[in-house]
């Protein structure tokens, strides 16, 4: 019996701001679409545990895509991207996610992202509240300065190792060593995109004076943050949720900034709480 995973991978073409992308995504499951964004400078293998989680995929169609310039999603198809510096903006990032969901013909997906994916989840709740059933910002906050650093791309250092070891402390020492090293390994692969992603994360993303414009009744917001995250701490997540109407915050014990990748078994317990709160789990799945 061949040991073939139920997870499948496909490409879809997406147009945003006159830019064409060929986007790679992994998916498994059926039912409520659950669209998952990896962290900055990384790719969709961070969601490997969730993609094969039978309890979640029983009633959710889990879709984990590679943002363009990450993993198997190439940079723009119709642009000389190598002639400019990559700097991701909130405007382009949110438009891309909505265009991807349209192209996949997803009806009221739940959007979940971690780190810069958590921050863009908040941006989506602000800009496109009627396009998503709910958002789950993981390790997100209203503002997350301090990580847009030249070190990620410094030509005098080994950028792959700087990115990978530079984010090592974002994981909890309790997380399984093998999963932390897989995450480290993914980070060696994304150094050319990491810094440009962090332009969004630490510079362009600033919702400090806009949180009261997010309506958690129109688009439910359930935030999850791990205790070992030094970039967006539980205090940052709690403060952010406190300023959003009807948002809910869940603190995750003994886990860090890459929860789905560093320790899916711990992360899933909190995710199931979030999905339950959103109401997307079927009665049979909860039984």
């Amino acid at each position: 019996m061949p040991r073939i995973s139920p997870v499948t991978g496909r490409y879809v073409t997406v147009d945003v701001d006159d830019i064409q992308y060929k986007v790679f995504y992994l998916e498994n499951g059926s039912g409520q679409p659950l669209v998952c964004q990896h962290t900055a400078g990384c790719h969709n293998h961070q969601w490997r545990g969730l993609l094969e989680d039978e309890e979640v995929t029983r009633d959710h169609r889990v879709i984990a895509y590679d943002l363009p310039r990450h993993g198997k999603s190439d940079p723009p198809e119709n642009k000389e991207w190598w002639k400019e510096e990559y700097r991701l903006t909130a405007d382009h990032y949110t438009k891309f996610i909505v265009a991807l969901c349209d192209e996949l013909e997803l009806d009221q997906p739940i959007f979940m992202g971690s780190s810069f994916g958590g921050n863009v989840a908040l941006q989506l709740a602000l800009r496109y509240p009627d396009r998503f059933r709910a958002v789950i910002p993981v390790e997100g906050a209203d503002y997350s300065p301090g990580f847009y650093l030249d070190w990620w791309q410094h030509p005098h250092a080994n950028a792959a190792q700087v990115c990978a070891s530079g984010v090592w402390d974002l994981m909890a020492p309790q997380s399984p060593e093998a999963d932390r090293w897989k995450t480290w390994f993914y980070y060696t692969q994304g150094s050319e995109a990491f810094k440009g992603d962090l332009y969004f994360y630490s510079v362009d993303h600033d919702l400090r004076d806009k949180l009261d414009q997010i309506d958690g009744e129109r688009c439910p917001v359930v935030m999850l943050t791990g205790t070992y995250d030094y970039l967006t701490t539980p205090d940052d997540g709690r403060r952010t949720a406190d300023h959003i109407k009807n948002a809910h915050f869940i603190e995750m014990e003994d886990i860090g900034h890459f929860p789905m990748s560093e320790n899916h078994e711990v992360f899933r317990r909190y995710l199931l709480q979030a999905l339950e709160r959103i109401g997307s789990r079927s009665a049979t799945a909860q039984a």
Binding site: G146, W151, A157, V162, D169, Y230
Partner: peptide
Amino acid sequence: PMYHGIWAATFRRDMKLEGDVLVLMQNLR
């Protein structure tokens, strides 16, 4: 938490990374 590495303690505690930080980055692993 925040005592689990030099980045964490530098961002959230009283740790300081000083001098030729490039050499630290070159040997970070």
